[in-house]
Amino acid sequence: MRWTKFLMINCKEATLLSTKHVGHEITLLERLKLTLHNSMCKPCKYFLQQIKLIHQALQSKNLHDTVHMREAKKKEMEELIKNNL
């Protein structure tokens, strides 16, 4: 049937649409194509599931908060600033 062919996409296109989906910028038609593809393709289903989580992890405070400047370096900088005031 012609309409199914129109809605069919390959994995390369499906993963691009998953990317748009996670970024909340997917159109209705694209979403239909993605849902149809993922209902038949497990790897692409896993892909979407996993990048959703990656998106969450990228937004999480934990990703950033675990990095700190070394205390010694901070002290050194405070001294430098004082001396250059």
Partner: peptide, 21 residues
Amino acid sequence: PKESSNSALEKLLQKEYIQTL
């Protein structure tokens, strides 16, 4: 892509494991 276990996915958000990201 392979299927991932739910526990592995949940761990990704935890502080100790986010280093991998």
